[in-house]
Amino acid sequence: MDDNGGRLGRLRRILERREEREAAGPSEPWRIRAGGGTPTLPVTEEVPLIRTDFSDDAVWTAVRDAVLAPHPQGRGEVFRAEVEPVEDRRFAGLAAAELVERVPADPECPEEPAATLLLVADATTVTSAEHHLLLVEIDIDENDLVRRLRVVPRAVQMVENNLTTANMGWEEFAEAADDDGVLREL
């Protein structure tokens, strides 16, 4: 995958929204629209993989490494999940809604969040047999709707790459989840 694929798509969407905002007039910054709160999550080019459970370092390491592992595809191509681990005890025990409140405004486009996808290693990740993570999406086109889905570590790359490049939509992954709400494969 082209290293800039997700970033170029995101830049294109930012430019389109900037043009729409200029035509519509001034808007409020993301943090005000989202209800305030101190933005404490780091601004990153990649999807943050946020550790909120600090009870088992070995599980965290295994999950993080599985998410970051290369995924060979056909014809010698190798894909990786474009995620950045965030290991900060200030996020210990926070729920998805609390993490969304801590997403800062995009420095280049303050009306939007710096991240629209969050990957969370929470207590369920640590205690579940498959160590599935919580994937959170902030849909700014749907009035900042927050969606959640559980994903096993080996499926993170496929989901992240396809969502950030807009190859597939959230609904496709939600429909592919098993009856227990966990996405394992497509």
Rank of each mutant, 00 (worst) to 15 (best):
L68H: 07
A123C: 04
D139F: 01
P72M: 03
A62W: 14
N143P: 10
T125W: 15
E108S: 09
V59C: 03
P110L: 06
E77A: 12
V120H: 03
R102G: 02
D88K: 06
F91D: 03
A58F: 10
A115C: 07
R64S: 13
V152P: 09
S128Y: 15
R150A: 01
D141I: 05
E77L: 14
F91A: 03
R64T: 15
R147I: 05
R147Y: 11
A123W: 13
R102M: 08
L145N: 11
Q157L: 09
D88R: 07
V151E: 02
E111C: 07
T165N: 13
L135G: 02
V67E: 14
P72W: 06
L118F: 10
A92F: 07
V59P: 11
A155N: 02
A62S: 14
R75N: 13
E130K: 01
P70F: 06
D122F: 03
T125N: 07
L117R: 00
P113M: 00
L68F: 15
H131F: 13
N143R: 15
V103Y: 00
R150L: 00
V67R: 07
P153N: 05
L117M: 00
A66L: 05
P107W: 13
L134C: 09
A97S: 12
D57E: 14
N162D: 12
V159N: 00
L149H: 07
L118V: 08
L119V: 05
A66Q: 08
V146F: 01
E82N: 11
E137T: 05
P107R: 03
D144Y: 14
D106K: 00
F54G: 07
V67I: 11
V103S: 00
V103Q: 00
L145E: 15
H71D: 09
A123L: 04
I138V: 05
T127G: 03
A97Q: 08
Q73M: 10
A69S: 06
V120A: 00
E137V: 07
L135K: 01
E84K: 14
P104C: 03
H71W: 09
F91K: 05
V136Y: 07
A114F: 06
P85V: 02
E130H: 03
N161V: 10
E87L: 13
E160I: 14
R64L: 11
D122E: 04
D56I: 01
W60L: 01
R154W: 15
R150D: 05
T61Y: 13
G74P: 07
